[in-house]
């Protein structure tokens, strides 16, 4: 085998030479093959494996008490147990459904309010004057800061939880919509008007579809923001939900459930991101190709 590959060497050499001349005469003809380079994906995979290994090793060597750091195996066993038997009166699926239900209810609310607000900011000076300062005020406040006020105003029921998440989602939805609206080409709007479109028709048939890629980006950011607000929203008087599950577990120092809950939250965030990116490709195939 080795011998035969050696005999082929002259041919391979000519090939390499031809390649070089090609590259000199028409440098754009062919991208040079990237040899000896590693992709970021491989590095990421190795990093993740290294972290897992470090975790498993320190648990195995009992560097830290299992109360603080349960082993990966213990977390996995707990995961199976909670899937099957549940934790604090609900199975893992029920916790997940409760949390996803809240986040999506909040997303619907944030879209119903945020998209029109973004349209108002993007299309009218008065709209911008009214909503811009309000959003800029709301945006940097952490959910835990306004949670008490929301509870004072709306009680400890489900609406409060959804509202806390929706508030966190509102700014990304509205601001992305506004930036999409402001980016609509004036020629496109003028063309529609000269074809007889009224102001309302321009918004419905030109501005909204033009801004759709940006709106979807806003939804993606909002879902991330809303999902990360989950634990705060489920702090008070929840009986189900991933955030509630983690907090209950923390109170009894059931650390393996805490770690498992964190990993489940991360995994779901990853899946949501993936789904939305797929949705973007399906709904706005023209983005970046105009």
């Amino acid at each position: 085998m080795t011998v035969s590959s050696y005999t082929e060497r002259p041919i391979a050499n000519t090939g390499a030479k031809a390649d070089e001349t090609d590259a000199l005469s028409v440098p754009w003809s062919r991208p040079r093959p990237k040899r000896g380079r590693v992709s970021a994906r491989v590095v990421s995979a190795v990093t993740i494996l290294a972290v897992l290994a470090a975790w498993a090793l320190s648990a195995r060597l009992q560097l830290v008490s299992p109360v603080f750091l349960p082993s990966p195996a213990a977390v996995w066993i707990k995961f199976i147990a909670v899937v099957r038997d549940g934790f604090v009166d609900a199975t893992l699926v029920q916790h997940i459904v409760a949390s996803l239900g809240r986040v999506f209810a909040a997303l619907v609310a944030a879209v119903i309010v945020g998209v029109p607000v973004g349209l108002a900011i993007g299309t009218s000076v008065i709209g911008r004057g009214i909503f811009d300062p309000l959003l800029e005020f709301l945006r940097p406040i952490p959910p835990l800061a306004y949670l008490p006020l929301v509870i004072i105003w709306f009680g400890i029921g489900e609406p409060s939880k959804i509202l806390v998440i929706a508030i966190a989602m509102l700014a990304p939805v509205a601001l992305s919509t506004a930036s999409g609206v402001r980016g609509v080409s004036q020629e496109r709007v003028n063309a529609a008007r000269s074809l007889g479109a009224t102001r309302a028709q321009v918004i419905r048939h030109v501005i909204l579809p033009s801004a759709l890629p940006s709106i979807l980006t806003g939804l993606r950011i909002a879902l991330g923001a809303g999902w990360s607000t989950l634990v705060a929203a489920e702090l008070v008087a929840a009986t189900r939900g991933l955030g509630f599950m983690i907090q209950s577990a923390a109170q009894f120092l059931v650390t393996d459930v805490v770690v498992m809950g964190i990993l489940v939250i991360a995994a779901i965030a990853f899946v949501l991101e993936f789904i939305i990116r797929r949705l973007e490709r399906a709904l706005v195939p023209w983005a970046g190709r105009e």
């Binding site: 020629e187 579809p209 759709l212 023209w286």
Partner: peptide, 26 residues
């Protein structure tokens, strides 16, 4: 007075036919 611009200003979310039919849809 329909206008045609240098950069076509077509609507990329519509097919060619739907673009042509835009005024009729309005």
């Amino acid at each position: 007075r329909a206008v045609v611009f240098q950069n076509d200003a077509l609507f990329p979310w519509l097919t060619a036919r739907e673009n042509v039919a835009f005024a009729l849809r309005l």
